[in-house]
Write a protein that binds this DNA or RNA. Sequence first.
DNA 1: CCAATAAGGCATTGAATGATTACTTGCTCG
DNA 2: CGAGCAAGTAATCATTCAATGCCTTATTGG
Lengths: 185, 185
Amino acid sequence: MASRMAAAERRELMLDAATKMFALGGYAGTSTDAVAREAEVSQPYVVRMFGTKLELFIAVFERACRSIEDAFAQVIADSEFDAMSEAGQDQLGETYVELLRDSDLLHVLMHGFAAATVPEIGQVARAGMERIFETLRGTGWDDEQVRDFIAQGMLLNVLLSMNAFEEHSGGLADLVSVCLPESVV
Amino acid sequence: MASRMAAAERRELMLDAATKMFALGGYAGTSTDAVAREAEVSQPYVVRMFGTKLELFIAVFERACRSIEDAFAQVIADSEFDAMSEAGQDQLGETYVELLRDSDLLHVLMHGFAAATVPEIGQVARAGMERIFETLRGTGWDDEQVRDFIAQGMLLNVLLSMNAFEEHSGGLADLVSVCLPESVV
DNA sequence: CCAATAAGGCATTGAATGATTACTTGCTCG
DNA sequence: CGAGCAAGTAATCATTCAATGCCTTATTGG
């Protein structure tokens, strides 16, 4: 038996493990057993901790959305930050690129968006996107500016999720290179 | 038994059915049996027609990518089309919005992107994205312009996939409204 | 030190799934 | 017309999976 631990702490470890596994297989393509093995607990314990596989996925997905929101909020709250300067805009962009270095986060996001046909997942997705939108509005940017920023982020998501940046394969290289204006890969 | 039909024709019907079902459940979340029922053939026939569930999904996904590519190519080839005018740019945007009215196409796209961690799916995704990129380059736009166009498209994908446009729910209404500048919803 | 609560595992199960094999039947062309 | 090929199915199988019920054992407060 895995050494005893406070349930809340174990829960976090399970969320970590689930994030990793869901990133690979998505909601339907990941078994609770795979999560359990990754978390080094038994499969029934995973189910019991979250009630249902769907609730587990939602917890993972929502946590991913919040980590984006939080990262932006933290940058914006910094007194040094100036949203209206060129440097400030680049800083937020780089913050996002930095977040996406965590490929598990990226893939969980993509799977969550794709699985939004499931009503409960769609609800979480809309709420998460809304919070991110509102957070970015806190810069003082106008709505079009916020939209363009998010749009670039979504393109980045898609290109990264299809591994377009590794070994600049084929003609995507040009699209890819113009997507990372100044941030190093 | 379903009435006889040329295999190629039946194959198209199966692809239609598979598109519909994969749109709902994604790759892992859709059974070959569900596709078979939708196509009104037996489950083994579906498997035999495509060899493998993965190959079926890839056929569906690739076909979706091509329909986008083709729609753009057709507009661009029109002698009336002027890529450099404001109207021309709007026209391409509206072409994409019109395509996405087919929610099955939209969701298959999203699931394909998300599932790009599967090597063979990733390969198809990169190839499809590259062709779309090259097609759009045929407008004569510079790479940044093409990138921005695609980025807006990706944002549209995500918002549509999470049903952000139905009953302008919550604070997403503002983001949503600034995403469809002139095209009617 | 001990009892109660919380942490966690084991065994099980019924349903679903992708794939294979072998069989049947309709159509077409010589 | 009839033989052979192509279209399609029925039956089946080995796995996998999410979930449930019941049991065991740490830990901790009194």
